[in-house]
């Protein structure tokens, strides 16, 4: 693997994000909107509900983000990609930029929930670790399903329907991890759950790395 090339590609992906800042911004706006909407109806959520809101909104924002991952370029541009790049390189660039962007969404959601209701988080170190690792996993899974979806006839529907079941395990573990950070769950199993999440990341990224070769063709 050519690391300079990979680095250029990652930088290019951020540049592309910046050029399409309205599409990225729309996801951020969607996240804030949905927090606002939920809290209009439910102004003082309990801890359990706070945690639930956070994960539901994060997963939907992430899925909405994933629809547009590969759709930023025109079809001519895409043909150019097919000829120029190895699929793994493209996927890796999307993974890196996606992780950072999802972490941004996660932070934004957390902060806006805190601003509009209250601050339940006791252990920020654990909260940040959980958010970081789950963004990594979500980005690995979603950048793969989005590649599949973008090649189908209705990218939005297909990529959201195939990505939701695949990110369910991440939510299953993630709600526990942030639950620990707000003193809602038993902290004894925290490290073990982090390990499972890391294992899922390894499996998902390994699978995506191999399978993207077969997906990203034309």
């Amino acid at each position: 693997m050519n690391w300079t090339r990979q680095w250029t590609l990652i930088k290019y992906d951020f540049l592309l994000d910046f050029r399409h800042r309205f599409s990225i911004g729309s996801v951020l706006l969607y996240a804030v909107f949905s927090v606002f909407l939920c809290l209009i109806a439910y102004q003082d959520p309990e801890l359990e509900a706070w945690n639930l809101l956070y994960w539901v909104l994060l997963s939907f924002s992430a899925v909405i983000w994933s629809i547009n991952v590969y759709a930023k370029e025109t079809s001519e541009h895409r043909l150019y990609y097919f000829q120029l790049l190895r699929p793994q390189e493209l996927w890796l660039a999307k993974w890196v930029s996606g992780t950072i962007f999802l972490l941004l969404i996660a932070l934004l959601l957390c902060l806006s929930l805190m601003a509009l209701s209250y601050d339940p988080i006791i252990d920020w170190r654990r909260q940040l670790a959980a958010m970081g690792l789950s963004s990594l996993t979500l980005a690995a899974i979603l950048s793969f399903t989005s590649a599949i979806g973008s090649l189908s006839d209705s990218p939005a529907v297909v990529s959201s329907i195939i990505s939701l079941p695949l990110i369910l395990p991440v939510l299953l573990l993630g709600q526990y991890l942030t639950g620990v950070a707000m003193d809602l769950r038993d902290p004894a199993a925290y490290n073990q759950y982090m390990m499972y999440l890391a294992a899922i990341t390894v499996i998902a990224s390994g699978g995506a790395m191999v399978l993207i070769n077969f997906v990203w063709k034309n």
């Binding site: 793969f144 399903t145 599949i148 090649l151 189908s152 006839d153 209705s154 529907v157 297909v158 329907i161 195939i162 695949l166 998902a204 699978g207 995506a208 399978l211 993207i212 077969f214 997906v215 063709k217």
Partner: peptide
């Protein structure tokens, strides 16, 4: 749903197979 969502035969076979292995 993925199977139903892709009309092109070759594309469908490739995408569903990759998704199936991932699952």
């Amino acid at each position: 749903f993925l199977y139903a969502g892709v009309r092109d035969e070759m594309q469908r076979v490739r995408l569903t197979s990759a998704y199936n292995l991932f699952c």
